[in-house]
Design a protein around this nucleic acid. Structure first.
Lengths: 210, 210
DNA sequence: CCCCGTCCTTGACACCTGTCAAGAGTTTGT
DNA sequence: ACAAACTCTTGACAGGTGTCAAGGACGGGG
């Protein structure tokens, strides 16, 4: 009996859950888009809903409250960007090539995913005031640190070098460079991209040593 | 006639203006305190006034609107911190001493002026979304860059070295390190101070070269 | 003494926020 | 075809926001 009925229910249940999750994702994407454009403080549920085919009430059908919606969005965003440079690491055959490809990848993502990066820096700043955001931010920060560290280690291995600083420090300086350039890029500074490229190239030689 | 009356009026006018400016400063200090504690998004005029001896209406007597209040506060804050390390530069007699004193000064200000630094990072993130804030933030950013650059140049001169990167890059990496450590310090990470000290010591040797 | 300018309070305004209950509309199972 | 479950809309709520006009309190000059 259970062998016959349960799979039926499972399939059924799964499709229902899938649909639910799919709509959650749809709403989360609209939320991310709005957050990236307006920033944390200026984004309201009504404005988010305005960018979907639905009305503002639907957000409370799919998410308990604003906090759950936003944490869901951040986790979704995380998956998009936390392995961004892994294929660069995989493809590069020597240290110099890796350095160039990595610097280029940084520039490209700064130019293409500008709004999402800006949102990330906004969220991290908000986390300094709102302890509720800290676990999520700290988790994402750690993953970004590991991502940078994979690049640095790969560069060291390919170039026969060793790392010169802890991964935390390496991440911090790369992040500072990126944030600085992003800020200038947003303000219309044409030189920001080149500064990022050159800064990244210089950094990878200094966080490692012969 | 004019020689007699005008100075009287001037003195009179000056004392009136002085009182006005003094109260503006008083209100701005309360505003800064509140901003540092609550952050940009969560600070309202009523909460600010609650921290003074006055009611919320007084803010519109001394400031045209919220934007003028906040820009006034930021310029006031700027003066406090933009020459913070100049005496370190003046006192140090050799490169190693300068490096140690600078690193210590960074740690001390992170620990003592935590709220103000947090506010600064908040404001800079908000400026990415609000073009109205960008001129003020860009101006302060440039002054901070110059402040760091004075330290780096002094280190280079004392140690018989030359600078290895543009001042923009030097500032960006120092800033990234500081922001990262501040964030961890706020979250209660005991190691943040040491990480900042060591990171700063390492950085000053890498943004210069023999 | 009274008046007038300065300083500050009070109370209101229009608007926006997150939240949620009540109920439509739609799909699904029987 | 009927009923039940799911999906979504509507409208309201309590509270918060920046802003400003009206007016009270105070103090020095006529």
């Amino acid at each position: 009996m259970t062998q016959v009925v349960e799979p039926e229910l499972d399939r059924f249940e799964r499709s229902r859950v899938d649909k639910f999750e799919s709509r959650r994702g749809e709403l989360a994407d609209a939320t991310l888009e709005t957050l990236g454009e307006l920033g944390f403080a200026r984004t309201s549920l009504r404005v988010i809903a305005q960018r979907t085919a639905f009305s503002h009430g639907v957000l409370h059908y799919y998410f308990r409250d604003k906090v759950e919606l936003i944490t869901f969005c951040v986790r979704r965003y995380k998956e998009h960007c936390v392995t961004r440079y892994d294929e660069v690491v995989a493809q590069a055959t020597d240290a110099d090539e890796l350095a160039l490809m990595f610097a280029d990848a940084l520039v490209v993502t700064m130019q293409e995913d500008t709004a999402m990066h800006r949102l990330w820096y906004d969220m991290r700043a908000q986390a300094m005031f709102e302890p509720a955001l800290r676990p999520t931010v700290a988790d994402l920060d750690r993953q970004l640190e590991e991502m940078i560290w994979r690049v640095v280690k790969a560069y060291a291995v390919l170039g026969g070098r060793t790392t010169a600083v802890p991964s935390l420090t390496a991440y911090a300086v790369y992040d500072g460079l990126f944030e600085n350039c992003l800020s200038r890029y947003l303000a219309g500074d044409e030189a920001a991209s080149d500064q990022l490229r050159e800064g990244a190239g210089w950094l990878i030689t200094t966080v490692t040593k012969a």
